[in-house]
Computed example of a mutant assay.
Amino acid sequence: MRVRFRCDPNLLASLSPPVPARDALPDWLRSMPGMAASDMHDGAPIRTVKQCPPFVDAMMQGFVMTLPCDVQVRDGVLSWNWDVPALATGTHPRAPMSFHAAAQVEGTPFVRGEQLVVKFNSFWTIRLDPGWSLLVSHPVNRDDLPFRLLSGLVDADRFHEVGILFPAIWLAPGFEGVLPRGMPVAQCIPVRRDALTLDIGAFDADEQARYEATARILTEETGHYRRVTRA
């Protein structure tokens, strides 16, 4: 699967690029323990999500779009000092972030008091192969970020002349600090535009036997999914 990224020629040398999601895992995942004492198990150690392949594999799926410069957040104000060169494309955005009108989410669960609806501007166009769309979501399992990206699906095999903009709800009105250059702002996963057929029914005898056999293995052996079935 080839994903083609293009940007204004005057930005290519200095712009932070998209990166494979596996290369943008957070520090807390690397540093967290693999085992932890569980009060529910009388203090016995149990495996943490660090040892859960589905949890980690979801975080490594696709690629992430990153913030092109540091953004300072202080007293509810977002600011940046980004020395953007003269661009060859006159209609191209120059600011890393902008805003949506709050009325655009009126009637949704995203309205919580006076929270801002921010927008991460994109400086890259994204082109997929024919028949593929791009599922754009908040970086998976990244509740440490002070915003929540709104999910969307873009037919990026047909829409790729301009960049995709990434709207988000700002969740932390009291946040003070810096959103660093290179921080993931959106996780993007290519998906095929194939119609689904839902085949629903009860176990046959073979399926029931395999269910019970696999369930026993998962109970008796540690790491079966990781060792045997994980792709």
Rank of each mutant, 00 (worst) to 15 (best):
R2I: 12
F5P: 07
D8I: 01
D8Q: 08
L11G: 02
A13P: 04
A13E: 15
S14P: 00
V19D: 03
R22W: 09
D23L: 15
L25R: 08
P26V: 05
D27V: 09
W28E: 10
L29Y: 12
S31K: 11
M32R: 08
D39K: 13
D42L: 14
P45I: 07
R47T: 12
R47I: 06
V49Y: 11
Q51G: 11
F55D: 02
M59D: 01
F63A: 04
V64E: 09
T66S: 05
C69E: 07
Q72R: 15
V73D: 00
R74C: 08
V77H: 10
N81F: 03
P85E: 02
A86M: 09
T89I: 15
G90K: 14
P93L: 01
P93V: 01
A95M: 05
S98W: 06
A103M: 07
P109S: 06
V111Y: 02
E114N: 12
Q115T: 04
Q115M: 07
K119M: 11
F120E: 02
F123P: 05
W124C: 06
D129H: 08
W132P: 00
L134H: 03
L135D: 07
V140A: 15
R142N: 12
R142L: 07
D144F: 06
V154H: 06
R158D: 07
R158W: 03
F159D: 13
H160V: 03
L165M: 11
A168Q: 03
W170A: 05
A172F: 02
P173W: 03
P173R: 05
G174T: 10
F175W: 09
G182F: 05
P184S: 02
Q187E: 09
I189W: 02
P190I: 06
R192N: 00
D194R: 13
L196I: 14
D199E: 12
I200P: 02
F203L: 08
D204M: 09
E207F: 01
Q208R: 13
A209W: 03
R210F: 04
E212A: 09
E212M: 09
E212V: 04
E212Y: 10
T219G: 15
E220C: 04
T222S: 10
R226P: 00
R227C: 06
R227V: 06
V228I: 13
V228N: 10
V228K: 13
